[in-house]
Amino acid sequence: MDLFNPNPITQILPFDGEVLHYGQVISAKQALYYFERLMENIAWENDQAIIFGKLIITKRKVAWYGDKPFDYTYSKTTKSALPWTKELLELKAIVEAKSGETYNSCLLNLYHNGSEGMAWHSDAEKDLKKNGAIASLSFGADRKFSFKHKESKQTVSVLLEKGSLLVMKGDTQTYWMHRLPPTKTVNMPRINLTFRTIVT
């Protein structure tokens, strides 16, 4: 065990991909500070998806930021990236230093409580760099995050704590789906930042 790193990096997936859990990379005090700033300063809006031709408005709120006004299309809806905020640039620098990767955009999700989650999916949109790293940084409530192999159906779960970093890379999106399962035991909001690379 590395005495200078109390949170050793853990590889979550058993095969067909690489998901690295870095544990808490931001202190509890700093995590609370960023949670409050993000709640106040991000241009949150309810997410939209077109499912079976019908427009669905989610309770979950989202925001999309980047180096340029990148268009990002998922669930048959398109968003244009807003300019980075001061806090997002600070967090981007932390994530890049920890993960050794670079990112040019960030999709933020706000879950008001445990009843709000995310269904099984893969982040394999054509706008994203193929097999590029996606870094997930969590604030607020601790929530379980799950992976399911597309063929074997094997599942793996990890608890994402406030201030924790998870990085998905390599073949992960090709072979695995992931989700944020709803839970009745969480009454607090959670903010999740997913730093990505858009190709143009």
Rank of each mutant, 00 (worst) to 15 (best):
residue 25 V to R: 05
residue 26 I to W: 03
residue 29 K to E: 15
residue 30 Q to M: 12
residue 32 L to M: 07
residue 33 Y to H: 14
residue 33 Y to M: 06
residue 35 F to K: 09
residue 36 E to G: 00
residue 36 E to M: 01
residue 37 R to D: 05
residue 40 E to H: 12
residue 40 E to K: 15
residue 42 I to M: 15
residue 42 I to N: 06
residue 43 A to V: 04
residue 47 D to L: 04
residue 49 A to C: 06
residue 49 A to N: 09
residue 49 A to W: 08
residue 52 F to N: 11
residue 54 K to I: 06
residue 55 L to C: 09
residue 55 L to M: 14
residue 57 I to K: 10
residue 58 T to W: 11
residue 58 T to L: 13
residue 59 K to A: 10
residue 59 K to M: 10
residue 60 R to M: 07
residue 60 R to I: 12
residue 62 V to T: 15
residue 63 A to D: 09
residue 64 W to P: 10
residue 64 W to A: 11
residue 65 Y to E: 01
residue 65 Y to T: 03
residue 66 G to M: 05
residue 68 K to N: 10
residue 69 P to C: 12
residue 71 D to W: 09
residue 71 D to L: 15
residue 71 D to S: 13
residue 72 Y to I: 13
residue 74 Y to A: 05
residue 75 S to Q: 08
residue 75 S to L: 11
residue 75 S to T: 15
residue 77 T to M: 13
residue 77 T to A: 04
residue 77 T to D: 02
residue 78 T to C: 07
residue 79 K to S: 08
residue 80 S to F: 02
residue 81 A to H: 06
residue 83 P to F: 05
residue 89 L to W: 00
residue 89 L to H: 03
residue 89 L to T: 10
residue 90 E to L: 12
residue 90 E to G: 01
residue 90 E to V: 15
residue 90 E to S: 14
residue 91 L to D: 04
residue 91 L to Q: 00
residue 92 K to P: 10
residue 93 A to D: 06
residue 94 I to W: 00
residue 95 V to W: 03
residue 97 A to S: 14
residue 100 G to F: 10
residue 101 E to C: 12
residue 102 T to W: 08
residue 102 T to M: 07
residue 102 T to K: 13
residue 102 T to E: 06
residue 103 Y to P: 13
residue 107 L to K: 08
residue 107 L to D: 01
residue 107 L to M: 09
residue 110 L to Q: 01
residue 111 Y to R: 12
residue 111 Y to H: 09
residue 112 H to T: 14
residue 112 H to D: 12
residue 114 G to C: 12
residue 114 G to I: 07
residue 115 S to F: 02
residue 115 S to T: 14
residue 118 M to Y: 05
residue 121 H to F: 02
residue 121 H to T: 01
residue 122 S to T: 07
residue 122 S to R: 00
residue 123 D to Y: 04
residue 124 A to C: 03
residue 126 K to L: 05
residue 126 K to F: 04
residue 127 D to T: 04
residue 130 K to G: 02
residue 130 K to M: 02
residue 133 A to N: 03
residue 133 A to S: 05
residue 136 S to I: 04
residue 136 S to P: 12
residue 138 S to I: 06
residue 143 R to T: 09
residue 144 K to L: 11
residue 145 F to W: 00
residue 147 F to H: 02
residue 148 K to F: 00
residue 148 K to M: 13
residue 149 H to W: 06
residue 149 H to E: 03
residue 150 K to M: 08
residue 150 K to W: 08
